[in-house]
Amino acid sequence: MNKKMLAEEIIRISGTDPKKCMKCGKCSGSCPAYDDMEYHPHQFVSMIINGNVDPLMVSESVYSCLTCFACAERCPRGVEPAKLIEAVRLFKLREKGKNRMSAEDVSAFCDADMPQQAIVSAFRKYAK
């Protein structure tokens, strides 16, 4: 898949339109995981517009997004960067053998208080 097609596929999966972005940076001003990301929400949007998706595909940033939707809620243009990040993450996880987490990993972080919801959510975010 070439660069342009990849960007288009990401946009299709996300269901959002990055071209609406006016580059205000409110997404990155809202992001609670900013400092743990290599590429920040506003960069996701602009890199996808520019078809520069490869660096995102190999970046750890997608796993730091909390899907808290603060960027989407506060975006003045309705771009919803969280959906673009989710699309990149899904695109990666959908590739065969690219699961980030497996059942064996659970014992490493699980403790007695951990709610079932936490494990289920983590699997949905880190595995396919």
Binding site: C24, G25, K26, C27, S28, G29, S30, C31, Y34, H40, H42, A70, C71, R74
Partner: peptide
Amino acid sequence: GMVGKIVPEGDKLHVQGS
């Protein structure tokens, strides 16, 4: 850049922006 969140705490306003 743009401010995303302001959190009042004590007598300060924590301004978080990009």
